[in-house]
Write a protein that binds this DNA or RNA. Structure first.
Lengths: 145, 145
DNA sequence: AGCTATCCGGACTAAATTAGTCTAATAGGT
DNA sequence: ACCTATTAGACTAATTTAGTCCGGATAGCT
């Protein structure tokens, strides 16, 4: 199955939550309890997101995280790269690691590269504002297509 | 990480292999050893692919599997559905299973549905002939974009 | 200065999924 | 009959993902 992992799911959730808070900072605790996500896990996720500059951290009382980019500037590609590194849609695309037994005669790297490129393009084209929808809007979209 | 699993990878590999054999049948053993895939595992995979009609099985000596569709008629969507069921890009999109704790106030199902739809469209638009490339062609494609 | 609320980051554990094996039966051609 | 190959399900092993724990650093407030 092709599936996005929890880190990405929670990351999207947290960023959409922050978008609703405008300029105010939200602590990990607040976000976690409102989003129904384990606090310690979200803490890790927010650190990674901070490291790529989508949010800034405010220490101390009343501190937390604040959005520093518009949702339209945050792409799914950037988010997944922040949380999981470069997209590699098949194991054999990884650099350096396990050397594939097939090697020279390998007939699958090329097709998977093509697919990988397509996924990267899709994720690049998907900014968070395109994911900022209500349940009703979403079911409309699905219904139409 | 968003990643396609081995079943799909091996399935693509096997189908591309069959495409090169024209009308002749290839046994699982032959495909497995040529593609560098565990035989028993590929056996399972081919069964599922047969069940959706992309290949037919020929029993007995000199038997094996034969392509019954053109590569252009086999989409990645069809293949993944055959091997893994409907695409659900996030766990919370699954029907019936674990009921999500967030439920009513859930803010993530809608965005994930949007993403899911995009992936489905991409996989539908990707037929196996678009993946039928040599290593050289693939690197050209990547280089251009 | 000291207290408190928060972020930071790494090592660790647990749970779930995926990959792969084993065994036994069935089907069909020669 | 016999040989080759598919079919199917239960089982095990390996890997990945999800989640926890803890000691530390930072900044604001009193």
């Amino acid at each position: 199955m092709i599936r996005v992992n929890k880190k990405i799911e929670y990351g999207v959730l947290a960023l959409l939550y922050l978008a609703d808070k405008e300029d105010k900072a939200a602590s990990v605790r607040e976000m976690a309890s409102n989003c129904g996500v384990p606090e310690t896990l979200l803490s890790k996720i927010m650190q990674s997101i901070k490291n790529v500059g989508y949010v800034s951290a405010v220490y101390g009382n009343q501190g937390g995280y604040k959005l520093t980019k518009e949702l339209s500037e945050i792409t799914l590609l950037g988010l997944t790269e922040a949380l999981d590194g470069p997209i590699q849609v098949a194991e054999c695309l990884e650099e350096g690691t396990r050397t594939c037994p097939a090697k020279a005669s390998c007939r699958i790297v090329a097709p998977m590269n093509v697919l990988n490129q397509k996924i990267v393009e899709l994720f690049h084209a998907t900014s968070l504002d395109t994911l900022y929808v209500t349940t009703e809007e979403a079911s409309e979209k699905v219904a139409v297509s």
